[in-house]
Amino acid sequence: MERRRVSKEEVVQKLKDDGDFDRLRVNIIRRLKDNEELRNKMISLVKESTALNRPGAQNMKPRQLSDAIFEQVGSKMLSQLSDGLWGIIRSEDGMKSEIRETVQSVYATLSNTGGVQEGPSTREAERNIPTPFQKVKPVLVQGVNRSKR
């Protein structure tokens, strides 16, 4: 089977078009939200903030209080979220293997000449995952295969 050279951009576009990117993103976010330790750290940061515990805080509008808390502990919270996110992405039992396998599968599909698929990708079929958008059938225009967008 003949192989063709595939660019990073083509792989990323195929990941987006097939819904793989969105599926991976949703799985990462779900795992991040399920991280009890991280959630407890965030709650602790907010509870211990001086903005929440200062006199008159109970009389502030929710948005004002939220902004004051974020100003005080926001960068620390974002740093912890970032660390948690990268931990999920890099962990072998987390998403690292799934991301690698998905990207390799897309690359293999694109690099095989004639390997451009119509219909659900093999990754969708294997996992029986619906895509977040409706697939559009390719249309033959003057002998060139183009997809409606």
Rank of each mutant, 00 (worst) to 15 (best):
K76N: 01
Q13W: 06
P138K: 08
S79E: 09
L81M: 06
P62I: 11
G143T: 05
R90N: 08
K76V: 08
R5Y: 13
E126F: 08
N53V: 03
S111R: 07
T113K: 10
I89C: 06
L110Y: 02
E9Q: 13
M77Q: 00
F133W: 08
L85G: 08
G87N: 07
R3I: 10
Q80T: 02
E10K: 01
N145A: 14
D17C: 04
R39E: 15
R63L: 10
E126D: 15
P55N: 10
N128I: 06
N128W: 01
S79Q: 10
L45N: 04
S97H: 07
V136N: 14
T109M: 13
R5D: 13
S97F: 03
K47S: 12
S105K: 08
L52W: 13
E101Y: 07
Q117Y: 08
S75F: 06
Q134N: 07
S111E: 04
R123C: 02
V73F: 07
K8S: 10
D17L: 03
S49A: 14
F70S: 09
N27T: 08
V46E: 06
V144Y: 03
P130H: 05
E36P: 05
S66F: 06
R30N: 12
V26E: 15
S82E: 14
V12M: 13
T113G: 04
L45S: 07
V46R: 10
K47N: 11
D93C: 04
K135M: 13
A57I: 13
P62Y: 13
Q104C: 14
K16D: 14
E48F: 05
S7K: 04
E36M: 09
K33C: 10
I129D: 01
E2R: 09
T109K: 09
L52F: 10
Q117M: 01
V73S: 01
S147T: 10
I88T: 03
D20M: 06
K8C: 05
A125S: 15
D17F: 06
F21H: 12
V46A: 11
M60D: 14
V144D: 02
G119S: 11
R31G: 08
F133T: 05
R4Y: 09
L110R: 00
Q134I: 10
